[in-house]
Nucleic acid binder design. Structure first.
Length: 450
RNA sequence: UUGAGGGUAGCUUAAUGGUAGAGCAACGCACUGUGACUGCGUUUGGUGCGAGUUCAAAUCUCGUCUCUCAACCCA
């Protein structure tokens, strides 16, 4: 019987695994540099957790089943609900702001396609307990720097920033209630990929004859790319009283956020784009997505503020903002930009030995070298010299240590620099002392004389 | 869930109805004290799976699985 892996699930052969760990290590490093703490949560959760957050429809997109105890469970499709529960449960004892991150695998029962699989890794980064725009800005900077750490520059990706609060104000000024606003935002979200006529049709169902002029207004808003333009647009909205005040405050928060990113020197990556609204209803303020600079392809990362979610999932009132970045789109992008390093598992040292007696001494030395952290390899079975050298060379090792009868009789081994071909003899007792210098400087081809 | 296009050895591929072939890789030998070269050799498949048409199927037909791309969805 032949078995294959399940659709949308990857097998990580060593090379792919190295790549995966490379991605993880960069994510982790940047998060630590921003002083976020790593947490983890169960991979299997009560199905209800996701229904509560996203509605019944979500079930069709989950790996879910009934466990032996009759519980309806699901593999996690995202981290946020688990995280909200974790934070909610200890909300009163956590020092704020709570800055946490996770790297974990997530599962969605969808048909795989470019940039999307059924099992994928996500980098989740969140801040709880800080309502001000500095938290949003901090995450935006972290997101930008994490992408930069892979060698991506401002010509490679942009972070598109939008604001659901401004949208709601704008929609309120058009006289839309909450339910109608949600529907309209759903359409705005798709506008970029939708034909205008079709969008108009969908809007007419909600707005009737105003649809045409409304769509014009939407198009003006979504094409704004600078803050002055956005400010002018918002100030021109027919708002009064509390709403006018809210709009003024919101613009101040925009200013604060942008000043923060500007001060961090990352403004070149930020692009105002109110066309981003994110499909999810639970976002409450700033929302953002990172895209390849041309705007092609899937979002590299997405996030925003979700101030109401912790409470909805049973916790206390707790402002929150976060984002997630997936490994699949990121790897696709790095590959297309030729930014994936070539990974090699080359040993530091390969031992070449002549026979069984020499092998015993070699094993002893290998153990001490390994104990202090060198990557040491040797053939597992007896092989001829020529073959051992060939293998040593192919392994990419920097040095060969040669355990030959003559050298060992003198209490020494021969060291060969496999890149230069230089050789010299070292007393076995001096190995640990001498190797660091050899590795630092290498052996010239004529060093054997010294 | 829907639509389109693919699946031949570990990888890249050839064979348009008539003996499934090559390159790379891997392994072995030349090669028991010095590698990146070379030479020789070996291994690997019933063509994703199943059925059908045919004297004959990798090739044509149907079903199915899977991959890729797209639609839906996108937390």
């Amino acid at each position: 019987m032949q078995f294959e892996s399940l659709p949308g699930f990857r097998e990580f052969y060593p090379e792919a695994c190295r790549l995966r760990n490379y991605i993880f290590s960069h994510w982790r490093k940047v998060a630590r540099c921003y002083c976020f703490s790593e947490y983890d949560a169960p991979v299997l959760e009560p199905l209800e957790l996701y229904i509560e957050k996203s509605g019944e429809e979500i079930v069709g997109q989950l790996f879910n089943f009934e466990d032996r105890g009759g519980r309806a469970v699901a593999l996690r499709p995202e981290m946020t609900p688990s995280l909200a529960r974790l934070v909610g449960a200890k909300a009163n004892s956590l020092k704020r702001p709570v800055k946490w991150f996770n790297i974990g695998e997530h599962y969605r029962y969808e048909r795989p396609q470019k940039g999307r699989l059924r099992a994928f890794y996500q980098f989740n980064v969140d801040i709880f307990g800080e309502a001000g725009p500095a938290a949003d800005a901090e995450l935006i900077c972290l997101l930008i720097q994490s992408l930069q750490s892979f060698g991506l520059g401002e010509a490679d990706f942009k972070l598109r920033l939008s604001d659901r609060d401004l949208w709601l104000l704008m929609l309120a000024s058009e006289g839309l209630d909450e339910a109608a606003s949600a529907k309209v935002l759903g359409i705005v979200d798709k506008l970029e990929r939708m034909e205008r006529a079709k969008a108009l049709e969908s809007l007419s169902a909600i707005l009737g004859e105003q649809a045409e002029s409304f769509l014009g207004q939407v198009e003006r808003l979504t094409t704004i790319r600078d803050f002055a333009g956005l400010r002018a647009f918002v100030e021109a909205l027919p708002l009064e009283g509390a709403r006018q005040e809210a709009a003024r405050q919101r613009l101040a928060e925009w200013t604060a956020l942008m000043e923060h990113v500007e001060a961090a020197g990352l403004m070149a990556f930020l692009q105002i784009d109110l066309g981003i609204v994110r499909g999810l209803a639970y976002y409450t303020g700033f929302v953002f997505e990172a895209f390849e600079a041309s705007g092609e392809g899937r979002a590299l990362a997405g996030g925003g503020r979700y101030d109401a979610l912790v409470k909805k999932l049973g916790g206390p009132e707790m402002p929150a903002v976060g984002f997630a970045m997936g490994d699949v789109t990121l790897i696709d992008l790095l590959e297309s930009k030729a930014l994936l390093p070539k990974f090699v598992d080359a040993p530091d040292i390969v031992i070449v030995m002549v026979g069984a007696d020499e092998r015993k001494l070699a094993l002893l030395d290998a153990a001490s070298l390994r104990a202090v952290g060198y990557q040491v390899n040797y053939p597992l079975k007896e092989q001829g010299f020529g073959k051992q050298f060939k293998a040593a060379n192919q392994s990419g090792a920097r040095f060969a240590l040669i355990y030959g009868t003559d050298e060992l009789a003198r209490g020494a081994v021969k060291v060969k620099d496999l890149t230069s071909g230089g050789e010299c003899e070292i007393r076995r007792s001096d190995l640990l002392q001498t190797l660091p210098e050899l590795i630092e400087h290498g052996l010239m081809a004529d060093d054997g004389a010294r």
